[in-house]
């Protein structure tokens, strides 16, 4: 995985090199990106190469993101950026209002050149309140979450066994971890993977 991230970072910075050639923005040189990556972060401290928040505007290949702490982020999507939105996807599937986590390289101008962007991703610990046709109703910290089973995508992992599409072993009252994608401004998610104890 680390090798994959390194390769992705190389691709991202290489793509930025293309931007340099196209726009003449010297601050986006690949060397600057790698230099920025060398910053070490102390345990407990915020990571300048990470951002979270909701997309307030999309302009060209830039995402303008308002952090949950109200800090504003400019996130640049490059040809090397990996985008996840329930599954690996493309930039055109990203929308204003989506939530995200992003990791990349903070450039001298403050822009985050993204290696990876996880759109609307949630990782919830919940109890199953009820099971319907292609839907789970979850209790999550006092909130009701409607979790949709997506045919061909949603999978269940029962006690560490290989992922399967069969959700029939999920039982009301059981504790689960649900990795999925949030539907913005609702209490609904699409299920990527449900982890359930046996």
């Amino acid at each position: 995985m680390h090798q994959t991230l390194d390769r992705r970072r190389l691709l991202a910075t290489a793509a930025l090199g293309g931007v340099v050639g196209a726009t003449g923005l010297g601050s986006l040189a690949p060397e600057a990106a790698f230099a920025a990556d060398a910053v070490a972060v102390e345990p407990g401290m915020p990571d300048p190469n990470f951002a979270e928040g909701r997309i307030s505007k999309i302009s060209g290949n830039m995402l303008l993101v308002t952090g949950s702490d109200t800090v504003l982020h400019s996130i640049r999507i490059t040809d090397g950026t990996s985008i996840w939105k329930l599954h690996p996807t493309t930039f055109d599937r990203v929308a204003v209002g989506d939530g995200l986590y992003a990791r990349g390289v903070r450039l001298p101008d403050g822009t985050l050149a993204a290696d990876s962007v996880w759109v609307n991703i949630v990782n919830l610990h919940a109890h199953i309140a009820s099971v319907g046709r292609n839907v789970l109703h979850l209790d999550h910290k006092g909130q009701r979450i409607v979790a949709h089973v997506v045919t061909g995508r949603s999978a269940a992992v029962y006690n560490g066994t290989p992922a399967v599409s069969d959700m029939s072993l999920l039982r009301v009252g059981r504790h689960v971890q649900v990795l999925g994608a949030w539907h913005p401004d609702t209490n609904e998610i699409d299920i990527a993977t449900v982890y359930a104890a046996a």
Partner: peptide, 9 residues
């Protein structure tokens, strides 16, 4: 996300 993709869970 430093050591794995968030999508791995």
């Amino acid at each position: 996300s430093v050591i794995a993709s968030l999508s791995t869970g």
